[in-house]
Amino acid sequence: MTLLSVQNLTVQAGEVPLVKGISFDIQKGEWLAIIGQSGSGKSVTASAIGRLLAPNLKARGKALYNGKDMLRFGAKEMRRLRGTSISYIFQDYQGSFTPFHTIGRHFDEFLKAHFKLSKAQRREMAEQTLESVGLQPEMYTRYPFQLSGGQLQRSSIALALLTKPDLVIADEPTAALDSISAFKVLRLLADLQQETGCAMLFITHDLRHVRKYADQIIVMKEGAVVEKGDKQSVLDQPQHAYTRSLMTASPSLSAASQLLKGDDTSCVYCN
């Protein structure tokens, strides 16, 4: 069943097109990865779907969530959807938390806004959720600066999954972490997705983060989709030269020794 259907989505900054009429569907419980370099329009796409665009950017087209166009929702309808059905995980985990509030207060505010629970119930639910992402309940009383990047990102995953959403939009959730913490957080996200059955819109520039968990892949370049399909067919038979260069840049570990050998043209896209 189609959960989200994006149809001919265009995002413009004044006259400059950032996203050029892209379309894709996400099925219920599916992990869709959008990959591309900085500036390819992948984050703008995610923001447009979540109605989080900066005021100078204008989105056109459709984003049908269970058949209803989210781009035409009023503030109230959007808020209801955000509380219960759609949640976000951002790259900048520091920016996701208010520095002078404890981690616990973030959970409490969130639960107060969306559920009718007693204080004790809220606390219990928050601590349970912290444990479910591999953090100790003691983190409840800590401030964001007392946590490491990986711990903070785990906390924001816990917050995002608190309302059991149907769709999680994760915009480079691991890009600001060291790659070891990144892989651990990724594994956690995949486990939780299995557990809750939510669909995932996962934005990344690193193909290594896609190989294991994604079902579908979209490759974006300069605001357009250059390739899309199920993971196996995109990885096994990449049609576009850009996809191939992304793949060479992130080989498996056993092929790493060959990474720097040979002449290739991938540097055309660099700098």
Partner: peptide, 16 residues
């Protein structure tokens, strides 16, 4: 570490 994968690879090649 602060670069995207394609740029990472080009920098590694240069260093090598």
């Amino acid at each position: 570490s602060s670069l995207d994968v394609l740029t990472q690879m080009s920098i590694l090649k240069l260093l090598d």
